[in-house]
Design a protein around this nucleic acid. Structure first.
Lengths: 217, 217, 217, 217
DNA sequence: CATGAATGAGAGTTCATTCAT
DNA sequence: GATGAATGAACTCTCATTCAT
């Protein structure tokens, strides 16, 4: 419905860049607290300690804030993926997975509703262009990580596997952050997520809690 | 934000029950078309062919409509689960899974945005009570179905497994309905979803595309 | 820019009709007092003694109020034209003209700025359709009046003459109402307007102040 | 509403004078394109290639721009009037009139909305002082031109005649530029305007389309 | 003097909700 | 019970104006 999605003004000055960051952080807090509709731009400005006008100087409309938040999230995820990828040689797929799950859970637990919102409300927003662009980064890193471990992976179609794995990953992490199953230890939860991911990718994953075999007689 | 969540008035009369159903169906159409905020109660009333007042007679506020929609969805899923469960003796876990995936995809493809909305916006709504109650039904049936196949299932904690499986299931079906990966055949997609679910549950599932036997010696 | 121009809801009930009239009258006062931009819809509602929502129930946007005001003005002018036209047999063209000028001046003096606004800002508004439609009524009556006196009229192209006469008429009346020339008696002013109109139409009109004979052989 | 109307600073320096002119030209373009409210000072600055601050250096507020535009227009009209006046001895009143009409039409056709705006919105602006002052120049030249032809003019009150003639003139030219009657040749239109003016001034003017009888003995 | 980032009051418009009929 | 006109708080976004640099 609205057209522009990118910041009106690319912040060149250090001061502006700082301002933009301040606004994005404020938006994160506000959207996390109230959801997309509950959030309002004046509140974002207030929390950022600037005037509404300044918000609109850099973000042409409310949706642009969400887009920015999404990009922020993607940058975050890419950073994590890169770190794990850097250590990929030294890490088994399971180790890499568990590390990713653990790190992601931390991220999602700081702003659980925001993450859900990004996942759910963004697709409704227009301008798939920008979204896809940013998301592609995550897609690419993930695919790259999987490729690195292709020896262990049984799924023949790597693109499809990336797609499936990313969806599972995000959803399970969201769920664990927002509505964790009652009475489950955090480690068990992380383990379950990893199991699910590796079960699909390698089929060799399974309950390894009790290293012993035969969990069931 | 608001407090009451349950219909003000349980419709005892047949006429009322019909009215309520009409309103819920209208709500389904409107929410699917416009999303939570985009939808408005006056439009729901218009589509239902009743007055706003009548909508408020049975649904104390906008959120109550979403709750009702959620219950409708749960009823739908339960029906599907029951059908599969009824045939459980005759079906292998893989067969049951594939049937569930296929049926669910149909459902989600008729009202994709609504499903996403229910998944995403509902948790934001208050009154977890009603939600959990309805959702528990799905949880229970799923657990029951898994229990019926416990011989094949490697996950020791059935509650946790149910939790994980349900999340994966819903998310993958949503994703497949709303943003399917490009260039993937429908059957391959359904297969991938089943693989993911069974990979976690049984560890024995894997790519069976290449019909080759003995995935494992 | 906006699309709808006509009231959203044709007021069928007597109460609604009254409400619409109340709002239009309030709009007249507010627009006359503050001009198009200076006026604001909340103020219109306040003056009308209703809520903004009610204004928007009948007028989809600010412009629709101006359109309604224009229609009100046109109805007014048509009424005056009809009255004069009814007596046309008994009136000379000069008498008819002077009566029209006198009546119009009264109208314009009650809401001078509004009249100016209608004349000036309306064309900027979109939806020429509705405007032309309403305006055509005035055009038609005027042409009809001129036709009735065609014997005295020297202009060969009646459509062009109607166009020219209407413009002169409106402008001179506006001017006389809003910025009258200093030190000129009201009657002299009315006379001057009539002279201008008749000078164009009949060439026989002229200053009859000094009853002097034969202004030109 | 606001008080100051005159430039804060009379531009003495050549550079400043140039700057002021640049801004006024930009304002002309912007106001013509968007109308009074649609225009905004930042856009004017942008089009002028200067900063908003610079605009405010010379024009204390938005209205001051309109006032300046009015003065620009008046200067333009005065120039035209002077040219015709210079040739007054050699020109009949009809010739002078037709020349004025033709020249004015050219002017109004370059910036039709701006002209309308000046005519319509200016009176709403405060500070009649400055306006009248500038307008007086046009008034004076026109009166002077009429005086030069007093022999042919039948209207006894020259001030009133000037007033009436100016209003007719401006309105008919505006109308011809903005909403010309359909299907009328440009020359016929110019002729009609001249006829109207001369009909009032001399009563001897009339349709001369059919060149038939001597329009003047 | 020039700049333009920042301000913030204010405007148009929507829509969940009420309640007199 | 049903209706739907009426309400009005609240929200997004604009833009005239200022002032630190």
């Amino acid at each position: 419905m609205k057209s522009p999605q990118k910041p009106r003004k690319e912040p060149r000055q250090a001061r502006s860049r700082f301002l933009v960051e301040t606004i994005v952080e404020a938006a994160a807090r506000v959207f996390d607290a109230h959801g997309y509709d509950g959030a309002n731009t004046n509140e974002v400005a207030r929390v950022a300690g600037v005037s509404v006008g300044s918000v609109y100087q850099y973000f042409p409309n409310k949706d642009a804030l969400v887009t920015a938040l999404h990009e922020r999230h993607v940058r975050h995820m890419v950073r994590i993926l890169d770190q794990v990828d850097a250590a990929a040689g030294a890490l088994s797929l399971r180790e890499a997975t568990e590390r990713l799950v653990a790190r992601s859970l931390e991220v999602h637990r700081t702003e659980p509703r925001l993450q859900r919102l990004l996942h759910a409300d963004l697709p409704t927003l227009e301008q798939q262009r920008a979204l896809s662009e940013a998301s592609r980064a995550v897609l690419d890193r993930t695919r790259q990580l999987l490729a690195r471990h292709s020896a262990e992976i049984v799924q023949p179609d790597l693109d499809l596997a990336t797609y499936v794995v990313l969806r599972m990953f995000e959803e399970l992490v969201h769920a664990a952050a927002l509505d964790p199953p009652p009475g489950v230890e955090d480690e068990a939860l992380r383990r379950a997520i990893s199991d699910a991911l590796l079960g699909y990718l390698t089929r060799a994953a399974g309950p390894t809690r009790a290293g012993s075999p035969a969990d069931r007689p």
